[in-house]
Computed example of a mutant assay.
Amino acid sequence: MTVTTMSTTGVEVGTGTLPIIPDASAVAPRDARALSKVFFEELAVLEEGTHAYQYARNTLIEMNASLVRYAAGRFRHRGDEMEDIVQVGMIGLIKAIDRFELAREVEFTTFAVPYIVGEIKRFFRDTSWAVHVPRRLQEARVELAKATEELSTRLGRMPTVAELAELMSLTEEEVTEARLASNAYNSSSLDAALNGEGEDGEVSLADRIGSEDPAMELVEDFHALAPLIAGLDERDRQIIHLRFVEELTQSQIGELLGCSQMHVSRLLARTMKRLRAGLLETG
């Protein structure tokens, strides 16, 4: 269906005439409710893609933008830019407009707000987590917070995992998993300052994180090598000790044992091959 007439009073389309609204965003909420019904009646009979259809749909979006600002106000404490929240909420409003039917016999505001709020909550679920976790754990975190607050108030202390599991109708393992997942919600920069510590009164978080001790691998190696070295004969053990503990050269070892440097080299190579094979079998 196409536009047949356009005047200063309205756009003649469908079964009636839609008023031309120069600034639909300035329409008061009370007037928007009445006008929205008129526009929805025409939108239902207009052909999608036509100028008239786009005019009706865009006007509905602008007139009801106040619903988005109202719903977005509930999330001011989240710390995100309000403009970002409003933009996400507009997506929910557009979905509500495209899916609303007057035959539902329900006010558009009642129908639209859950769409708007749902879109905003989905935005927070998908973008607010520092580390992505499965949706079921994201939802479990919210339920865990509610259950913890309820039981803390009721019991006067922090609830146990078993008490939380009973209230949430989950297993203790699932509650523990939800607690661990909660740690992924926020993250801190390694350069974040920790006040009141250090000589100059401030150190970074990275300064408090320990590093991997390379000697730990040596402990494992020594533990695995001990029985293998004990299985060597006396001369081979002595050569290993002189070379790797006393740190003597092969020539010096040869002088002590009364043999050539070449012979010491062959003995070392044979012994190392035996030890290496033993470690591989152990591994």
Rank of each mutant, 00 (worst) to 15 (best):
Y70D: 06
R104W: 06
P19H: 01
M6H: 08
Y115W: 04
L35P: 13
E62C: 03
T271H: 10
T127K: 08
E173V: 09
L167T: 11
P227E: 15
I239F: 05
R157K: 02
P19N: 04
L137P: 08
K121I: 01
K37S: 06
I91C: 02
R78C: 09
T4L: 10
G16R: 10
K37Q: 07
A206T: 00
L225F: 12
I209Q: 00
R125L: 12
G258L: 13
F123W: 14
E150D: 12
M90A: 12
D80P: 03
R243G: 06
E42I: 08
F75K: 05
E247N: 03
F39I: 06
D200S: 12
L60K: 01
A230D: 14
D80A: 06
I120V: 04
C259W: 05
R266Q: 12
L228H: 06
N195G: 14
M262K: 02
M90H: 09
E105I: 00
R69W: 00
R243T: 03
Y70E: 08
R33A: 15
E220W: 04
V38C: 07
G89H: 02
E42H: 15
M168I: 10
A34D: 05
E173G: 13
S188W: 11
E234L: 08
L60H: 01
F108E: 09
V113S: 13
E62I: 01
R270S: 13
